[in-house]
Amino acid sequence: MANGTADIAAPILQLSNLSMTFESAHVTVVALQDIGIRIGRGEFVTVVGPSGCGKSTLFNILAGLAEPDAGAEIRYHGETKRALELLGQVAFMPQRDLLLPWRRVVDNAILPLQVEGMPRAAALKRAEPLFGEFGLSGFERHYPQQLSGGMRQRVALMRTFLFERDLTLLDEPFGALDALTRSLMQRWLLEVWQKHQRTILFITHDVEEAIFLGDRVLVMTARPGRIKLVLEVPLARPRPSSMLTSPEFIALKRQVLAAIEEESVKSFQQTAAD
């Protein structure tokens, strides 16, 4: 790793040498190059980077939906795995909420439990106490089309949380929300995370969000995507929103922004040259 990160005892996930190349008839695109990451149990790690830096590709690999180039090493719970073996092992929430319009809110939330073969009644019992916590009380019988964007996102998050796995991947879950809703959702997510003791890897393109939420922030480079900076966030938890204007926070933000700016310029030039 480029940065001297404190070693985490017994990491839940370890990636090294991970690259991903897409080849088509005309072009070869290196989406990810030599990614190395260690994520400890219970950690909240955020990933920021310019658009097109391969963040989502990384998530697809971790969710078991794509196989990286040969030579990559993925260790999950200390065991070497192929990406495809991670299918069903990692809770993955894609950018779009992907709620099924023919299922009510409850039935969308319990979808992963039903996929696992749990009968509907048992799954509903399991989901019931979570509705209050996810701010969905009274909306259980609604259809997704009847909900606001923020609520839809909470249903999608609830669905992800009901799929209880040791690692949770969240791909820009609040990207489409307005600023106010987003900051409410961030604080709420931290509460849920602390209460449920999940390990979260969180993609965003919002630097403030990355620092505010994360124990560590990984900054990725433009194509080919690499880890440019690993930044510890030594801010105490729970984090009040007033922290956003504290000098420590601003200093961290400056560091991340400087790293990203360099990358965005590069990415912009690259696109212009393409």
Binding site: N60, A63, G64, L65, L87, G88, V90, F92, P94, R96, L98, L100, L111, P112, Q114, V115, E116, F163
Partner: peptide, 21 residues
């Protein structure tokens, strides 16, 4: 929608479950 199919796959759904659900 391919992403929806991928989501179900990530939950561990095989072809039959994806078909039905």
């Amino acid at each position: 929608d391919e992403s929806a199919a991928n989501l179900l796959r990530s939950f561990g759904a095989g072809p039959l479950r994806q078909m039905a659900m």
